[in-house]
């Protein structure tokens, strides 16, 4: 990868001297939850590698452990067996070198949009001026200009999710984890957010791991799409998306490659469901 963009991408983070090779690495991980009455295997034998700067989407039916994958990568959850590595380092505790976006915006309702974004900086004790400049930059990039001082209850769902995205990007994380970030938005806003996320990803060059229910969203956004089956969650297959880097929304939707990829994924997931 070009050295200039690498430095830009991970500026505030300390990067290990040896090349990490992969941004995210899951090695034969399994996750078993224990409830009062039974043990549930949420994930089994999952191996996944994500290259630095890559955009990988994970699709699959509800309850296939997609979200659990993100929690493993960030250290919010420890695997029952196998190992998770982030930037070449084994994950043993919650890792601060990620940005996280949930389906709910999870904003603090007593803080304005800007103050919600700056929570990231306050927790990390980033220099105030640098944080403010970065926040302004992100506010402009995500189209939040004019809404900086609005409180969450004054913002629409799409705007709230933009705030959450800004907050996740404030510290220039080398890895961005997104857990169905646009699942609660209306179809039009969702398309708009997809276009913007694609652009933001290209501008920041960060590694993105996106969990989604939408096959179209996955294909439009990602370099590779990981397909998962449910109960227990396993990787059913990985597909490379052969679309050009520059993806105009309307044009991309009409590409034969887009149709091929969505069809492939749909067949695969459908088959997995039928075999259940």
């Amino acid at each position: 990868m070009p050295p200039g963009s690498t430095a830009e991408r991970v500026a505030p983070m300390e990067r290990p001297l040896t090349d990490p090779g992969h941004a995210v690495e899951l090695d034969e991980v399994a996750v078993r939850f224990r409830t009062k009455r039974k043990d549930v295997t949420a994930l089994q034998d999952v191996t996944l590698r994500v290259r630095p700067g890559e955009f990988v989407a994970i699709v699959g039916p509800s309850g296939c452990g997609k979200s659990t994958l993100l929690k493993l990568a960030s250290g919010l959850l420890a695997p029952s067996s196998g190992t998770a590595r982030l930037l070449g380092e084994e994950v043993t505790a919650p890792r601060p070198d990620v940005g996280y976006v949930f389906q709910k915006a999870a904003l603090l309702e007593w803080r304005s949009a800007r103050k919600n974004i700056l929570l990231q900086a306050e927790m990390r004790r980033m220099p105030a001026r640098q944080a403010r400049e970065r926040a302004d930059e992100l506010i402009a990039m995500t189209g939040l200009t004019g809404f900086e001082d609005a409180y969450p209850h004054e913002l629409s769902g799409g705007m709230q999710q933009r705030v959450a995205l800004c907050r996740a990007l404030l510290h220039r994380p080398p890895v961005l984890l997104m857990d169905e970030p646009f699942g609660a938005l209306d179809a039009l806003t969702r398309e708009q957010m997809n276009v913007e996320l694609r652009r933001i990803w290209q501008e920041t060059g960060t590694t993105v791991l996106l969990v989604t229910h939408s096959i179209a969203e996955a294909v439009y956004l990602a370099d590779r799409v990981v397909m998962m089956t449910a109960r227990p969650g396993t990787v059913a297959g990985v597909i490379e998306i052969g679309l050009p880097a520059d993806r105009d929304y309307g044009t991309t939707m009409a590409e034969p490659e887009f149709a091929r990829a969505t069809r492939h994924i749909r067949d695969h997931l459908g088959a997995a469901v039928a075999a259940d």
């Binding site: 919010l76 919650p94 601060p96 996280y100 999870a106 990231q120």
Partner: peptide
């Protein structure tokens, strides 16, 4: 919100 606490954990 538990997600708020998880978010906080990833903020170090």
């Amino acid at each position: 919100d538990p997600e708020m606490l998880q978010l906080s954990a990833t903020m170090g």
